[in-house]
């Protein structure tokens, strides 16, 4: 499978990564190589084999429904580039 330039542009856009136009061709080649490498896995016959979700035969651990966290607004906001009145503050996004 190979990716073309416009697919790479879309992927970068969805991931909010700014990629200069002149880098797109090169990235398309690199990403295509990665996909081709991974595609070797499809050579293995997996008919009738259940998908493996974990290397260890353990179940999903569950938590009890009790309040054990929160009450730390200062810590939550500590690394915010911008904050105001207890809120994260971001450039205006309006519909």
């Amino acid at each position: 499978m190979s990716l073309d330039k416009s697919a790479v542009r879309t992927i970068a856009d969805l991931a909010r990564i700014r990629v200069p136009e002149e880098d797109l061709d090169h990235l398309a080649g690199e990403l295509s190589n990665i996909l081709t490498f991974i595609e070797q896995l499809s050579e293995v016959d997996t008919d009738g084999v259940a998908p493996m979700s974990s290397v260890a035969a353990v179940g999903l651990p569950l938590r009890a429904d009790s309040v054990t966290d929160g009450g730390q607004a200062d810590a939550v906001l500590a690394n915010a580039p911008d904050k105001a009145e207890g809120f994260f503050s971001v450039p205006k996004v309006v519909e």
């Binding site: 309040v67 054990t68 966290d69 730390q72 607004a73 810590a75 939550v76 207890g86 809120f87």
Partner: peptide, 18 residues
């Protein structure tokens, strides 16, 4: 996460790092 779900409350006060 173990943060509470109450409606209202001070902003960002019912938030875990998760």
């Amino acid at each position: 996460s173990g943060a509470p779900t109450l409606f209202g409350g001070e902003p960002n006060d019912q938030v875990s790092f998760v």
